[in-house]
Amino acid sequence: MPIRWYFDFISPFSYLHWQKVKMLPEAVTPVPIVFGAVLAACGQKGPAEIPGKREFTYRHVLWQARQEGVALRFPPAHPFNPLAALRLCVAAGASARAVDALFDWIWKEGRAADSSEALAPVAAALGIDAAAAQGEEAKARLRANTEAAIAAGVYGVPTLAFGDQLFWGNDAHDFALAALRNPALLDDPEMQRVATLPVGVQRR
């Protein structure tokens, strides 16, 4: 069963989740997407766009990283424009090496990633021309990735997807593994019932 992992470098939770995903014995295809476009398609704001929630989220992810033994240092500013990093990743074939290098640059070393100039050392280490990585081919492939993710129902990052199931968030990793190893888990009567639970009230 193909397994896809949708992510954006703007997300520190994606960085944390990647540390688990890359260790899975199953083959997983990393799919870089534009989180901002997903938010727009869903008509919602990101956590870093909401005062109060922004600060809580930053502290929460730092706490999670420390609990999981993962080094995490925030870049100079957040949120930042992740397009340069996403396009560089796409230009490098979205390989595990490229994903690792970019995540480490941004979230392990705490460096800026909002321009091709800022990412020039990473591009050089990957053997990619930094300026060429921002060309039309990389832009088109990133756009296609994002459109396909939205069409598949992705509403946040990170998301692990297999079959028609989506598992969103670093903290859903164990749930995703349980369902991957035992698909019957989702056939439980209460699991089925809540999937079609009626909406009791809608905010206008």
Rank of each mutant, 00 (worst) to 15 (best):
190 E>H: 14
139 K>A: 15
164 D>K: 07
62 L>D: 04
167 F>V: 04
142 L>Q: 01
22 K>G: 00
38 V>T: 05
121 P>V: 15
158 P>C: 07
169 G>R: 00
106 I>R: 05
57 T>G: 13
110 G>K: 10
124 A>C: 03
117 E>C: 04
36 G>V: 12
48 A>C: 07
121 P>E: 15
66 R>W: 08
10 I>N: 09
78 H>Y: 05
114 D>C: 10
145 N>M: 07
202 Q>A: 15
72 L>F: 06
45 K>L: 14
118 A>H: 11
118 A>R: 13
47 P>H: 06
139 K>P: 07
155 Y>K: 10
120 A>E: 15
94 A>M: 11
170 N>Q: 12
106 I>M: 09
107 W>K: 09
86 L>M: 11
78 H>L: 13
202 Q>Y: 12
7 F>E: 00
20 K>G: 02
40 A>T: 14
70 V>L: 02
101 A>Y: 00
16 L>W: 08
162 F>Q: 08
1 M>T: 06
64 Q>F: 06
1 M>Q: 07
41 A>M: 03
125 A>N: 09
21 V>Y: 02
132 A>G: 09
37 A>G: 04
181 R>P: 00
71 A>Q: 09
37 A>I: 06
57 T>P: 01
172 A>E: 11
113 A>M: 03
145 N>A: 06
188 D>N: 12
81 N>C: 14
80 F>M: 10
46 G>Q: 06
161 A>R: 09
90 V>P: 07
55 E>H: 10
46 G>V: 03
202 Q>I: 14
159 T>V: 08
